[in-house]
Nucleic acid binder design. Structure first.
Lengths: 199, 199, 199, 199
DNA sequence: ACATAAACGAGACGGTACGTCAGGTCTTTCA
DNA sequence: TGAAAGACCTGACGTACCGTCTCGTTTATGT
C-alpha cells in the first residue's frame, strides 16, 4: 500500500505551477492533444519533468487543472431571467455557440472530453468540475420556470436540460452538424413545446 | 506532392485483414485504446507491421475499419412500426441501452468517439459510417409518423431525433448519468410531447 | 538436403544480368557498400528482386561478379620484361598506384575486401578470382629474374612478391599512407636489395 | 548546423559503458559483425538503446571503443633488444602469429579493419589508435638497429617495418596464406637482407 | 505455329533492426 | 529540501530491407 510520500504542497512553487498551465494550454492549441507531451510542457515551462510528475499523474490531469483554472475565472452567475424563458435560452445558447468556435477553447475542451471517454476516473473529474456547473444553471433556470408555472409540474427538468444541451454539445463534439443560430432557435422551441403545461 | 504509389488492393491478403481486425478488437477490449499499439496488433495477428501501415494510416483507422466491419453485419433494418410511436421508441432505446453495457462494444466505440473528437478527418468517417446510419432510422421513423399525422408537420424531425439520441449517447459517453429504462421512458415521453401536433 | 531445384542457366536473361551488374557498380559508387541493397539494385536495374535471389546468394556475391566481369576484361598479360627488373616494377606499380585513385575502382574493391574479411567463403573467391591473378604476374616476373640469375636462387619469390605488394595494398586499404611515386620507388629498391644475389 | 546539445559526459554511467563493451565484444565473437546489432548489444548489456546512441554514432564506433579499451591494457612496452635483431623479430612475430589465431581477437579486429575500409573517418581512428602503436614499436626497434649500425643508414625504416608487417597482416586479413613460423622466419630473413648495410 | 514451362517484373507478405521520441524513475547540483 | 537538469531503462513509433512467396507476362524452345 505505502504510497509515495506525498510532497509538501505548502512548499510548492506557484511560479512553476503557472508556467506549467500556460505551457500546457499553449501547446495543446499548437500541436494538439496527441502530440502534447510532458517533456514538451516541461521544456516550454522551463521546468524539470519531475516537477510535473510530482504533482500530476498524467498529461490529462495537467491539462484538466490548467483548463479548469482558466474556466473557473468565468464564474458562472446563472442564466438571465427576463421572464421569457425561450428568449433567455436562445440568447445564452447562441452566445455559447459562438464561443465554442474559439480555437483556444476547442483544443483543450475536445481533448479532455476525448480523454474522459476512455478514462472513467478522469471523466468524473472533468464532468464534475467543468461540465456539471454549466449544466446546473440550465437546470436551475428550468426549475425556476417550472415553479413559476411556465413548465409542466410533472416534467423532469434535468432531462429537460439534457434535451437542450446534449444535442448542442453532441453536434459540436462529433461535428455532426453546425451550431447555427437557426439550429439553436429550433432546438429551443421544440424542446420547450414538450415541457410546457398541457393545454 | 508525389505520394507513395498506392498498393495493389487486388493482391491484398484477406487472411491478414481479418486477423488484424480480430486482434485490434480483442486488444482494445483487453488493454484499452491508449495502450493499443500497432506493434501489439501486428504481433497478435501474426502479421508484419508493414502490412498494417500499408493499408491504414493510424491505429484509429484500423479500429474504425475493424469495428465497422462488425457493426455492418448488424445491417440496420429500420425501426419497428407498430403504430404506437412512443412504444416503438422505448422498445428500441431500452434494447440499445442494454447493448451499450456490453464491454465488447464499449471499448471500440468510446475509443473511436474520443479519437474523432481530436481528429476531424476521422470523425467524419466515424460519424458517416457508424453513427449516421443509426440516426437515420430514427429520423425515418419520425418522418413516417409525421406523414401519418402523429407528429406536427412543422417539426424538424432531424432535430427531433437528436433530442432523443443525444441525451442518450451523451450520458453514456461522458458517464453523466445512467441509462436506465426509467430514463429512456421519461426521455421519450418528454421529447414526443414536443413533437406532437398542437391541440 | 534436397536443395532448391537449380534454375536453368541456359534460359537466363543476359539483359537482366548486365543490368544488374551495371546497377550494382553504379550504386556502390554512389551510396557505398553499406547502403547498397538488393532492393536498390533491383529497382535501378528494372528487375524483380527474385531475379537477383535466383542467381546470387548475397549482395557481396552480386558485386563480386559485377566487379569481376569488369576486371577480367583487363586481361592480365604479364609484366613487361625489359631486362631491368627494378625499372619494370617501378613502372607498373606507379601505374597501379595512379589507377587505385580512380573512384570507380575504389568503392567495389574496398567493399569486397572488407566483406571478405568477415566472410571466409567470399574471401576465397575474391582472392582467387581477383587478387591472385594480379599477384601471380609479379611472382612470375620474379621467378624469371631468379632464373636469369638476377635474384638469389635461395629466395622465396612468393614472399618476395608479398613484400612488394602487401605494403602497397595495405597502405591503400587502411589508408595508412600515401601511394606516391617516391614511396613506390623506395619500396622497390629496398625489397630488391633483399632479393639480389649476395655479393 | 545547430547540432544536438552534447550530452554531459560527467554524468555518464561507467557501469553502462562497461556493460556495453562486454556485450559488444561477446556478441561480435558469437554472431559476427554483420549480425551484430545495436539492439542486440543493448539487450545483452541490459541497457537502453538510447544510451548507446547517446554516446556512439554507429556499431563500428562502439566496437572500436570496446576493443580499444581491451587492447590498451596490453600496454605496448617496445620490442625486446637482445642485440640480435633477426632473432628478436622472429620471436615477436611468431608470438603475434599465434595470438592472431585467438578467436576473441579475430572477430573484432577483422570487423574493424573491414568497416574501416569503407569508412574513412573510422579507419583513421582505427589505424591511429590500434594499428599505429603496434607499428611504431617495430619502427623504433629498426631505428635503434640502424643507429647501432646494424642497418644501412640510407634505409627508410618506416617502409622497412611495412615490408615486415604488411605481408603478415595481409595474409591474415585476406586469408591469402598461413601464418606459420616458417613463413615468419623466411619473411624476416628476406626483409633484413634488404636493410643491412651493403658489403 | 503453337503449347508449355521456365524466367521474368512486380510487389505483398512475415519479419528484424533501424534511429527517434517520449514515458516515468533516479541522481546530481544548485539556490 | 524543492526544483532544474538530464541520464537512464523501457517500449512504441514509422521506415527500410530482408528473403520468400505468389501473381500475371514474356520468351524460347521442342514437338
Amino acid at each position: 500500500m505505502a504510497n509515495k510520500p506525498a510532497p509538501d504542497a505548502s512548499r510548492r512553487s506557484e511560479r512553476s505551477r503557472r508556467a506549467i498551465f500556460d505551457a500546457a494550454l499553449a501547446l495543446v492549441g499548437e500541436v494538439g492533444y496527441d502530440k502534447l507531451t510532458i517533456e514538451g510542457i516541461a521544456a516550454r515551462a522551463g521546468v524539470g519533468k519531475q516537477t510535473i510528475y510530482r504533482w500530476w499523474p498524467s498529461k490529462a490531469a495537467v491539462l484538466l487543472d490548467a483548463f479548469g483554472s482558466v474556466v473557473e475565472e468565468y464564474d458562472q452567475e446563472g442564466l438571465p431571467d427576463t421572464g421569457d424563458l425561450a428568449a433567455d435560452l436562445k440568447t445564452v445558447l447562441r452566445a455559447t455557440a459562438d464561443e465554442f468556435d474559439d480555437a483556444a477553447w476547442q483544443a483543450p475542451y475536445r481533448a479532455l472530453a476525448a480523454a474522459g471517454a476512455n478514462d472513467e476516473e478522469l471523466s468524473r473529474t472533468f464532468v464534475g468540475r467543468l461540465m456539471e456547473p454549466g449544466t446546473r444553471v440550465y437546470v436551475d433556470r428550468l426549475r425556476a420556470a417550472q415553479e413559476a408555472g411556465e413548465l409542466d409540474p410533472d416534467i423532469d427538468v434535468r432531462i429537460g436540460a439534457e434535451m437542450l444541451l446534449s444535442p448542442f454539445s453532441q453536434r459540436w463534439l462529433m461535428r455532426t452538424g453546425e451550431l447555427s443560430h437557426a439550429f439553436v432557435d429550433t432546438l429551443v422551441d421544440q424542446v420547450l413545446r414538450g415541457l410546457r403545461p398541457r393545454a
